[in-house]
Design a protein around this nucleic acid. Structure first.
Lengths: 349, 349
DNA sequence: ATGAAAGCGCTAACAT
DNA sequence: ATGTTAGCGCTTTCAT
């Protein structure tokens, strides 16, 4: 083949036009003779032209592009971690003439999120990554952004049916499966396992439980699952756990394991501590936090299943900047963030 | 502060010299008045000057730099995976005017490795990442490269005492700890655990066992560790396992767990299969391979501890290209690759 | 509708 | 020893 690495100048020669015209043609800008545009694009395709990212980046230095990340103020510990991933990405792409802004707001408030998206587009954001509720208002705001030519990526929790570029987050069902495998393999005897979740009407919460049930059925011998909802409040979570333990006593079945699938792990940990269940009951939780780390060290928790918040912060920005620099759409719709199993031995402080 | 983002041109104005002189001063090139050089560097420091990577990258396109990765032909499955990480990095830095070559050779042969390094330097490699034996010859070759201004990174297995930029690989002692935690938590009853390794005189092999022993002491109740060496051969590994099982019978102690810390996992898996120990004995292995995946699915292995070969292939090239582009030395001497615990539930096919 | 040219920040070749 | 200039590949005026 032609040894020449394809560049705009290169294509310009072959098409017998100027570099400006090639640029215009390749970017579907107006003011190009359709026939010329056609032929330019054909040549580009034949040469396998891919824009040089370094050159484009250098050019951006004129008028820097800005990517915006919208994150919740809730679940502070987790999203602070995620933000560290964002900051790392910011460093990596700063020299590409791409700036990164982080906006934190109450993401449970759907209108707030939708408005934030609209505002960022108005301000000229070149791309948006966000965590928001899976509701119509948010979906419409995302679709408006995409229609305006601004790529959007959902992080940690997807907005289904929207025209976002892709979703970066964990496979929650799989996460539930992992919890089940761990508990099953730690518990060869039978008995009762309590799975505490937030609210089963939320898809995200339900998914983990679905996976967990499947996993228990697949790997355990004689474990029974008892699901309880804590609805995101400490009080209710604490209460439902207590009731579940009493109920088990009454039923004459031993509680041998606990799966804390909820955000309010603290309530569960406190129960384990108060009742001195450490060592008697196997406990698996989700995510990472100071109190979970402490519980791992004190053996009140055996394993916690993490979703690599750093990765979730870093990846979307890399995808967006790649998109800006090379026009390449992400390879897949769903970037599954790794499922990390963490015990006391591999705590990474 | 001065709102001006610091560039060479910028510094040149402040120092009242030309851009060329600034470039020379900042790169300690010869032919600059020491006093001038001093003042230029001072101004650069005060402005917090960091070279623009995109610009440097674009410049590289003139005469592309080449990074070389030297990998073993042995342990094929693992290093093929690692090479995939290398190829991914190659894509990412191609546009930076940085090419990546992969050389595979028999890395147990120290002279071969040392010669390969020398040859690559002679060929004008801009940086080298390598997996090689921790011997004097290799260390000297690395130091020669570094002395010639070519940065070197060791991958997967370190060459201690060498002047390599950094090491990217797993914390093997930690890996042994993790194995111990898993087995301990799966085995509340007491009994004997067989740990199969290659050759305890090799630091890398010994490390895992050290960690494993510490971990068993820390987490288990009543587990006894029996270490066997297989010396990297299938036959010997198979043989020593068999002997260990017979010995346990004779001693009247149940073998309840197996830790396969060796490269020849296959021998151990075959034993488990032949003796139909699946379900009776808890098994933890290292790394990932087709046969281990199969064993996970057939439940002959409970968990395998992986060291993220993709990461080990990707990271060194990122560090090297960052070094070329920004002159930044890596933040730490040892990039610990993540310790992944993989069961049947989180096999990533 | 198209061409020409300037410039992003840096470096290497050339000129003084 | 230092200044000047060209050029990496791309985009964006400004001219035509």
């Amino acid at each position: 083949m032609s040894g020449e690495r394809p560049t705009i100048a290169n294509i310009a020669v072959l098409a017998a036009v100027s570099r400006g015209t090639v640029d215009r043609a390749l970017h579907d800008r107006r003011g190009v003779n359709p026939a010329v545009a056609q032929s330019v694009r054909r040549i580009a395709r034949e040469l396998g032209y891919v824009p040089n990212r370094a050159a484009k980046a250098l050019k951006f230095n004129n008028h820097p592009k800005t990517l915006v990340v919208i994150l919740p103020t809730s679940n502070r510990e987790y999203f602070d971690q995620l933000q560290r991933g964002v900051l790392r990405a910011r460093q990596d792409i700063k020299d590409m003439g791409i700036a990164v802004d982080v906006v934190r707001l109450d993401c449970d408030h759907e209108t707030a999120v939708a408005q934030a998206i609209d505002r960022q587009i108005e301000n000229g954001a070149a791309g948006v990554a966000l965590t928001g509720p899976d509701t119509v208002l948010v979906r419409e705001a995302i679709d408006r952004a995409v229609a305006a030519g601004v790529p959007v990526i959902t992080v940690n929790s997807d907005v289904t049916g929207s025209r976002r570029l892709c979703f970066v987050g964990q496979d929650l069902k799989r996460s539930g499966l992992v919890a089940a495998e761990l508990l099953s393999k730690m518990l060869n005897r039978g008995g009762r396992v309590i799975a505490v979740t937030g609210n089963l009407t939320f898809r995200a919460h339900a998914d983990r439980i679905v996976g967990f049930r499947v996993g228990i059925a697949r790997w355990s011998t004689g474990l029974h699952v008892e699901v309880r909802e804590g609805f995101g409040s400490y009080r209710e979570t604490f209460g439902c756990m207590q009731k579940a333990l009493v109920q088990a006593d009454r039923d004459g079945e031993n509680v041998v394991g606990i799966y804390m699938a909820t955000g309010v792990n603290q309530a569960c940990i406190d129960i384990v501590r108060e009742r001195q269940l450490a060592g008697k009951v196997r406990v698996v939780t989700n995510d990472d936090s100071a109190s979970i780390r402490a519980a791992l060290r004190s053996r009140e928790v055996d394993f916690t299943i993490c979703q690599d918040p750093i990765h979730q912060g870093y990846t979307p920005l890399r995808i967006l900047s790649d998109y800006l620099l090379s026009g390449e759409r992400p390879a897949c719709e769903w970037y599954r963030s790794p499922i990390q199993i963490v015990g006391e031995s591999n705590l990474t402080d």
